[in-house]
């Protein structure tokens, strides 16, 4: 039986501010091994006051480079999130999917564009 484990961000970082990639990484290191083992995780944003993209990139975004998106959808749920933070996370996830899919092509295109000198 795969019982869902609730992981409260506030309890892990000890602050209502998810405003650094460093703290996001700490959260990632807690949840990623569980997901890799196929455990269901509910990530709770209870008591979190401010969340930024860099925090979510590290905590959640990088999981999309480790597991297929369908598997993440199956195992990871999010709760106690404001609509604003939910919207931010949607952008982070969309960005992560692009990042892991197209990064090299994307950078190559820019390399040609960034030709001007200073």
């Amino acid at each position: 039986m795969n019982e869902e484990i609730t992981v409260r961000i506030y309890d892990i970082i000890g602050s209502p501010l998810g405003v650094s990639a460093e703290d996001g990484q700490v959260v990632h290191e807690k949840i990623a091994p569980l997901l890799r083992d196929g455990r269901k995780v509910a990530l709770s944003f209870e008591k979190m006051e401010t969340i930024i993209s860099a925090f979510l990139n590290a905590a959640v975004g990088q999981i999309y480079g480790e597991l297929p998106a369908e598997r993440i959808d199956e195992l990871l749920s999010l709760k106690d999130m404001t609509s604003e933070d939910q919207k931010l996370l949607e952008r982070v996830v969309a960005n992560a999917l692009l990042y892991f899919k197209n990064r090299k092509n994307f950078d190559r295109a820019w390399k040609e564009e960034l030709g001007d000198e200073e």
């Binding site: 990639a21 993209s53 931010l88 960005n95 692009l98």
Partner: peptide
Amino acid sequence: GGNTTKQGKEPGGLGLKL
């Protein structure tokens, strides 16, 4: 959006776009 100089496993590049 999505452009970042960070190397490695972590995506980025949303801050300034937001």
